[in-house]
């Protein structure tokens, strides 16, 4: 039994090492005073250059704008859709839900090229170029199904009698809707929003095919920088992204634990 325990500990340690070693190496070289993987001494200069790089800062800004707009819009569209779809029955409902899942099930690259094809055709017909707007439309389209997926179970679980009770007690339909329905499904709406936001932030494939020639987001910038291997600025960027992710996840974890504790005390 003991031997087994040690073996499993070694296995777990190796697996975690496998997951983290590449990221650690990436961060390690962000402090290297040379451009190659030969160590030339410690420096912060790549971090300083990163913040001076206007193209990178602009693309960070673009990424955030797109993520905020796309996730807010997708959350509204998806929540309305989920409430509406839950009132359909039978074949119609299955058909709508299956069609809505297409962007989730389909390989990302196919979704990407299908957007590109349509936007190029429309662009020729209506005389516009791909850029900010096409990226935003594409992001809303692939985020909304995730909102629907996270709101739907909440609607199913909701007791429809509460809504009727609110009406009986003198609420009008709008009040009953905002005070009861929205309140009840809020956790689903919120997790749908978060999902959309993170998917939009991180999206490379769909942006790559819908961005046209000028519009840059951070993942696109990462692509350009890793593809041509220009400078260790990319390492500095990775380190900062990693720290940000770590901080966010630890914060969420602490919040969850506190919430769980509070629940336990009730």
């Amino acid at each position: 039994m003991k031997k087994k325990n040690i073996a499993s500990k070694i296995f777990v340690a190796l697996l975690i090492l496998f997951l983290y070693m590449p990221i650690a190496v990436l961060i390690f070289y962000s402090f290297n005073d040379g451009k190659t993987t030969v160590w030339k001494g410690f420096t912060f200069k790549w971090y300083i250059e990163l913040f001076k790089d206007n193209a990178i800062m602009q693309s960070l800004y673009n990424t955030l704008i797109i993520a905020v707009l796309a996730s807010v819009f997708a959350t509204i569209l998806g929540t309305m859709a989920a409430i509406g779809i839950s009132n359909f029955k039978g074949f119609k409902r299955t058909a709508i839900q299956n069609a809505s899942n297409i962007p989730i099930v389909n390989p990302e690259i196919v979704t990407g090229v299908s957007f590109m094809l349509m936007f190029t055709l429309l662009g020729v017909a209506l005389n516009f170029e791909m850029g900010f707007w096409t990226v935003l439309l594409a992001h809303i389209s692939f985020c909304t199904p995730y909102v629907i997926l996270s709101v739907m179970p909440r609607i199913k679980r909701m007791d429809s009698h509460i809504y009727e009770a609110a009406l009986d007690l003198g609420c009008n339909q709008w009040q009953a809707f905002t005070k009861i329905v929205i309140h009840e499904i809020m956790p689903g709406i919120f997790s749908g929003f978060l999902l959309s936001f993170t998917y939009s932030l991180d999206d490379f494939v769909i942006t790559y095919f819908t961005r046209g020639s000028k519009f840059q987001t951070l993942p696109i910038q990462i692509y350009t920088m890793t593809h041509r291997r220009i400078s260790p600025k990319i390492n500095a960027l990775s380190a900062l992204l990693f720290i940000t992710i770590l901080a966010i996840l630890i914060a969420i974890n602490i919040k969850d634990r506190k919430a769980a504790k509070a629940k336990g005390l009730e």
Partner: peptide, 14 residues
């Protein structure tokens, strides 16, 4: 949560 290109690039460096 790390961008997939960065994770692949890490292996390129390694």
């Amino acid at each position: 949560w790390m961008n997939f290109l960065l994770r692949i690039y890490a292996w390129v460096i390694l």
